[in-house]
Amino acid sequence: MNMARQNWSNTFAAHAALITYTLIALFPVFVILINSFKTRKAIFREPLALPGADSFSTIGYETVLKQGDFFLYFQNSLIVTVVSLFLVLLFGAMAAFALAEYRFKGNMLMGLYLALGIMIPIRIGTVAILQLMVASGLVNTLTALILVYTAQGLPLAVFILSEFMKQVSDDLKDAGRIDGLSEYRIFFVLVLPLVRPAMATVAVFNMIPIWNDLWFPLILAPAEETKTLTLGSQVFIGQFVTDWNAVLSALSMAILPVLVLYVIFSRQLIRGITSGAVK
C-alpha cells in the first residue's frame, strides 16, 4: 500500500518535471507562431492570446513574400542540403567500404587521417577556404557551400559507416565474388542496401547543421541569388527590425520547413542517436 502510493507520487513528480521542461522548450516557438498570424495591435495587446476573428491577420506574411525572395532562399537551402548529403553519403560509404573491407598498407593511418576532422572544426580553416574559393572563382556559388559541407560531413560519416560495414557478413560478399561480381558491384548491389539504416542516421545527423549554418553562407555566398534560408532570414529580419508582423512571419516561415522535416524524420533521428552510433 505504502509502496504503491510512493510509486504513484514518483510518477506524478516525473511527469510534472517533464511537462514543465517541455513547456519551456516549446513556449518560444509557440509564441512566435501564434503571433505571426495577428494584427500589430493584437501582438502587443495580448501576446499570449491565440489569434481570434478580429485579431487574425496575414499582413506579415504578405510583407515577407513581397520583400524577400524566400522561395529562392528555400530552394537554395534545399539544393545545398540535398546535394551535400548525397555526396557525404556516397563518398563516405565508398571510403568506409574500402577501410572496412580491404587490408592494405596504411589502412589504419588512412582511418586516423579521415577521423581527424571529427574533433577539429572546419571553421578554423575559414581564411584559407575563402582564399581557395576566390582563386577558383567559386565565391557566391552554391558549389562552394556544397563542397565545404561535404568535407565537413565526411569524417563522421566514414567513421560511423565503416563500423556498420564491418558487420556485413563476409559469406555474402564471397558468394558474390564466386558469382563473378566485380568489387564495385559488390559494394553497390550487395553492401549498400544492407547499411541503409546507418546511412539514414548519418543523413539526419548532417542535415540539421547544414540547413542551419550561418557562418559559411555569410562568408562564402552572401550574394542575393545564393542566400540560404538561414542567411536570408537573418538579413531580412535585420532590415525589418521594427516591423513586428514581418519579423514574426519570417521567423515562422523559417521554423516551419524544419519542423515538418523533423516530424517526418524524428523517429529516425532519435533512433539514430540512441542506437549508440556515436560512441
Binding site: 517533464l18 521542461y21 517541455t22 522548450a25 516549446l26 518560444p28 516557438v29 512566435i32 540539421i208 540547413w211 542551419n212 550561418l214 538561414t230 532570414s233 537573418q234 529580419i237 521567423l251 523559417a254 521554423i255 524544419v258 519542423l259 523533423y262 524524428s266 533521428l269 532519435i270
Partner: peptide
C-alpha cells in the same frame, strides 16, 4: 518535444 529547439537555426 524537448529535442525541438535543437533543430532550429541560431537565427530563429
Amino acid at each position: 518535444a524537448i529535442f525541438i529547439p535543437t533543430i532550429l537555426s541560431f537565427v530563429i
